[in-house]
């Protein structure tokens, strides 16, 4: 039986991922090559602990992201719920896959997230966006994923040991 704190660990790790992702770091490339730690965390917990990471957590995470940026309220919430549903649908398949095959898949998830947001922005405001950020984010996410997953495995083991 998990203690209540342990069961909040996925939510806590997603919050920390969000905070770090949105921190201003003194590198000029950080704007363009910024990994999406939130999607990696959502992906990991949805695949390995779907009972602790569902659409409600994804919705709240997205809403939080909307509130700390100036994106329309509900946009990140929508894209993250869409992602979590796709992740859940193919969860068993992803669990059985080799880790290296998951790398392009996480990049595809970042692209789906961007595509949902892009579609809404283009409909409401026209094609105004920075394409280099759109291209840079999946790439950076793919690169940092092994390190991030290693950290999440450590947390996961700690969670299972409780």
């Amino acid at each position: 039986m998990l203690s209540s704190f342990s069961s909040l660990l996925p939510a806590f790790s997603i919050f920390m991922a969000m905070v770090f992702q949105e921190t201003a770091l003194p590198f000029a490339s950080w704007t363009v090559l910024r990994p999406d730690f939130v999607i990696i965390s959502l992906f990991y917990w949805r695949i390995y602990r779907p009972d602790l990471c569902g659409p409600i957590l994804a919705f709240v995470t997205g809403l939080f992201l909307d509130m700390i940026s100036t994106t329309p309220i509900g946009l990140n919430a929508l894209s993250k719920v869409v992602l979590i549903l796709i992740m859940g649908r193919y969860g068993k398949l992803f669990r059985a896959m080799d880790f290296f095959l998951l790398l392009p898949i996480i990049a595809i998830f970042v692209i789906i997230d961007e595509a949902v947001q892009l579609a809404w922005i283009v409909i409401t405001s026209g094609p105004t966006f920075r394409w280099e950020i759109l291209a840079g984010r999946p790439l950076a996410t793919l690169v940092v994923m092994p390190m991030m997953v290693r950290l999440l495995i450590f947390l996961h083991r700690w969670l299972e040991a409780r």
Binding site: P55, I56, A58, F59, L63, I73, G74, A77, L78
Partner: peptide, 23 residues
């Protein structure tokens, strides 16, 4: 839950005018 969260997200997007935070 899945349908409710999806609908709620879309409703928030549609209900709040661009530029108005609403929360």
């Amino acid at each position: 839950i899945a349908v409710a969260t999806l609908l709620l997200s879309v409703l928030l997007l549609l209900a709040l005018r661009p530029g108005v935070r609403g929360t």
